[in-house]
């Protein structure tokens, strides 16, 4: 067994090195400890182990790990940027189709106050849509996971509803709810709802049946079992669903704005398109993507705080592997 745990520690150390973490040594020492104490235990010597658990990575090391995971995609991005600049500046493609990065930058700075206002509108719709989708999705998932009747009644409908192209509902929503924020938020909710339900149901159903047996012999009611066992156990699945949902919520909000709006990045995009203002169009696209990225990272951070124990989060901090 000692051999076994040392082996694991060795592999872990190798991974740490590969990801640029220099802190393999303390991890290895304390990882080896359980086996060692296990064997020494028969003599009932209460020798204190060197350390109960591997130390949590420090902030500096986390930053190093983050930098390590980011430099490759950053390099690709820079290469793409240079290629774009080259093609646009040499006018291999006319500027009214592809503007230079400089033109996009100028547009963005010149019209910043306007663009910022529209960004805030879209951000507001997205966040509200996402939060509502998360709450409704989780509630539906709980209902489906706990009740056989509701499972049979709701699950097929949820699946069927996903087949309806929700973008096609957008015009109807505008007719019903007008040109305000409501139809955009509803559309964001409709699109982001599905991944939350699916991941929530999968997570809640993945509880080890032995844990449920155990909980029954502990005399715990359904609420305690949910709070202490089933919900935390579902979190890794649920967080994965929420990450998908948050990016979809942006799509919902923007599409809602396409159909009928007087503000928001979707509205600006249509305007720029009509005026063949490609610089504004590019600036707008960059802002939309920024919303998606920022929200995605926020959910990532929430995940890191909520489930640091999960296997997917154990080695380093990485945005690219999750």
């Amino acid at each position: 067994m000692t051999e076994n745990s040392l082996d694991t520690a060795g592999r872990r150390a190798a991974v740490d090195k590969a990801s640029g973490e220099g802190a393999a040594a303390p991890t290895l020492a304390s990882e080896g400890a359980p086996g060692a104490v296990d064997d020494a235990h028969s003599s009932r010597v209460a020798s204190p182990p060197p350390g109960g658990r591997p130390p949590r990575p420090t902030l500096g090391r986390r930053a190093a790990a983050l930098a390590d995971s980011l430099w490759r995609p950053a390099l690709v991005l820079v290469a793409f940027f240079v290629a774009w600049w080259f093609v646009a500046a040499r006018e291999y493609v006319p500027n009214y189709l592809v503007p230079t990065p400089g033109q996009v930058w100028t547009t963005m700075t010149n019209q910043w106050s306007e663009l910022a206002r529209h960004t805030m509108v879209t951000l507001y719709e997205t966040v509200l849509g996402f939060v509502l989708a998360a709450a409704l999705g989780l509630a539906t998932a709980v209902a489906i996971a706990y009740s056989r009747t509701l499972d049979k009644a709701l699950y097929p409908i949820v699946l069927f509803a996903q087949v309806i192209p929700k973008i096609a509902i957008a015009p109807l929503l505008v007719v019903w709810f007008g040109l305000g924020l409501t139809p955009k938020i509803i559309l964001a909710v409709l699109i982001a709802f599905f991944p939350v339900v699916i991941s929530g149901v999968a997570g809640l159903r993945s509880t080890d049946p032995e844990l449920l047996d155990l909980s029954a012999t502990m005399g715990a009611g359904p609420w305690r079992t949910f709070r202490k066992i089933r919900f935390p156990n579902a979190l890794p699945h649920l967080m994965a669903g929420l990450k998908v949902a948050v990016t979809l919520a942006v799509v919902g909000a923007v599409v809602g704005e396409f159909v009928g709006a007087s503000e928001g990045l979707g509205y600006v995009l249509l305007l720029a398109n009509g005026n063949l203002d490609s610089a504004l169009l590019f600036a707008d696209l960059i802002l939309m993507s920024a919303i998606g990225i920022v929200l995605f990272v926020l959910v990532e951070i929430a995940e890191a705080l909520l489930i640091p124990w999960h296997a997917s989060r154990r080695v380093g901090v990485s945005l690219t592997t999750s």
Binding site: V37, G52, R53
Partner: peptide, 21 residues
Amino acid sequence: IEMTGLTGFEKALPHELSGGM
């Protein structure tokens, strides 16, 4: 914890413990 020799591992997560522990 004392009786079963888990002293020092009170905070260790399951994946950090051997099968016996």
